[in-house]
Structure formats: structure tokens, C-alpha cells
Computed example of a mutant assay.
Amino acid sequence: MHEIVDFRTPDTWPNLSEFEAGMDQNSPDATSALAGRTIALHYENGRVAEYQLGERELSWTVRSGEPPRPGWGPYSAPYVATEFAPELFYVLSRDDRAGAPKFVISVLDLAAGIATTIFGEVTSTEGRGSLEVHFEHAGIGSPSERRHERTGVMDGKRTLWRYSDTHLYEHIYVNAGTFGWHAVTGPEQGAAEIVPFRAYQIREDIILMWFREGYWTLTASGLMDLSDMRLAISGWGWDFRGRKPRGALTLLGARGVLLGEVTYPQV
């Protein structure tokens, strides 16, 4: 017989720390391969910013042009990085010094000489809080006419991701801007959402995915390899229940299977 699983309203969902416990079973290895390097990013809007990476902390400094948001000065923060594929790094950082956290998340493709950065800032911690996010593209070392383009390659796909023996989630990619998830097993079982989504083509089978949670003041971003169905992902934003910054320094991973793909008829 099939187990009856009822829909869970968000007010019954577990706290973030509760459902994430034990979820790191398939997390990718962190790397210090970028330590000691300085990487100049030439953004399409003319800004030049510089990453200086140590063993555990980085600085992100605007050398010319305007900052990504008003009030963003020199940014220094702890970081975590993983080498998702040869010469392809996913770098996550969070700066809490000003109270409301700022996030700089970058995909650095050193082989192709291009990067995509997601800038996030918690602009209010009142009530549920608010989170601003935007994307920028850059050349590494010099300006580039190439960029990671948005893609609809995930449209219609359904995937199943196992983060641990108990954390199993299905992803439903409705279209290039809409995404659904639900918890098949684990502490969130029965929870589900349809939320805003973006995907960028990083390499032939590697996708940068991003989505914004509807209930939590939280967004998630990660790299997905469709050739061997693996995922490296982090949620980041504001934990309004716990009244504290959340994520970006915890990198989770999952192994997946493609359940199928829907092709809609022409109408």
C-alpha cells in the first residue's frame, strides 16, 4: 500500500537547523586550491573587482567602477570553495559584520576565462526580512565578450536528489523561470513549493541553478552536472525564526537520477 503523505503548510515546517541536520552526507570536498591567488573580474558594466583568496578568508574589492549596491565597500569574509570540475570553482562567502549579511557567490571558470557572480544582501531584518539578489557576468583577467547564458535546457525535467540516507527531494523544472520542489522523505516530508528559478549554462553538461524560497527569506544556488547527476548547492539568506544570517558557508551535495522529461504539445 502507498503511504499517505499530506501537504504541510509552511508554519508546520521544521526550523532550518532541524531539517539540515545530517543532510551533508554527499557534500562535495572543499578545496584550498585558490589560496594565495588574486583574481581580477572585469564585469560587463565596466566594474573591475579583485578577489584575494587566503586559506579561509577572502576579500572582494572594487578597483574601478561602481559597487554592486550602494554602501558596498571592501568586502572581507570567510569562504568555502569546491572544484566542481577541472578549473571550475564554486566560491561562496558571507559577510556579517554590518549586521544584515551580504553574500558574494561566484562561479569561476578559469579554463574559459569567464565568471558569473550572484550578489545577495539582506536589506531588512524586520518581520520576515527581505533579501535582494542580482546576477552579473565577468571576464577573468580581462574583459570578455563571452558569458554564461541563461538556458531552458532543464524545462520539463523531473529529477530526484539524495542528500543523505534520509533526505530525498524531487525537483520539477516547469520552465526557464519556474521551479518546484518537494520533500519525498526526511524531516520536511510533505513540504513543497513552486518558486522563481534561473538556470545558466556553465559548460556542456554543467548548469548553475538558482531559486528563491517562497516561505523562508532564503535563496539557493548550486552547480549541477547532468552527465553524472551530481549537485553542489547552498541555501543562503535570513533565518527569520532564529533571527540570524543563514547559509553560504555550508555546501551540501546530492546524487540524483533523471525521472523523466515532459514535452508539451504544440497548441
Rank of each mutant, 00 (worst) to 15 (best):
N45Q: 08
R128E: 12
R255T: 11
P196Y: 12
M23C: 05
L226C: 09
E213G: 00
D165Q: 14
I206M: 10
W13V: 01
R128M: 11
P196Q: 08
S27T: 03
Y90M: 02
P28G: 09
P10V: 03
L259C: 08
W216A: 07
H148P: 01
E149Y: 13
A33Q: 14
P196S: 09
K102R: 15
D95A: 02
P67T: 14
L58E: 08
K102P: 00
A199M: 10
I207L: 11
Y169D: 13
V91E: 11
R63E: 06
A100R: 06
S221C: 05
V262C: 05
A98K: 13
F103C: 04
L218N: 02
E55I: 13
E83D: 04
V195I: 06
G22W: 03
Y75S: 03
A192P: 04
L252F: 15
G54D: 11
L223H: 09
E55G: 12
Y79L: 05
V62E: 13
L252M: 06
F135A: 05
R246H: 14
R198W: 13
G141C: 09
L160F: 06
V257S: 00
R47H: 13
F135D: 07
W236Q: 03
A100N: 06
M209A: 06
G36F: 10
T9D: 15
Y264G: 01
D6W: 12
D24S: 05
I4N: 14
V153Q: 12
G22T: 04
L16C: 13
T217F: 12
S221H: 13
V267L: 15
G190T: 03
Y75H: 05
A49L: 03
I118F: 04
W60I: 07
Y173F: 15
I118M: 01
A112Y: 01
R243A: 15
S234I: 05
T123W: 00
T61R: 15
M224L: 15
E145A: 14
I206E: 11
S144H: 08
P86L: 04
L41M: 15
I118N: 01
G180Q: 10
S27R: 12
P245F: 10
S64L: 10
Y51M: 00
E83L: 02
E87A: 03
L58D: 13
R246K: 10
D24M: 05
E170M: 08
W210H: 09
R146T: 13
G180V: 10
D29M: 03
G237K: 08
H171I: 13
L259S: 09
Q189D: 05
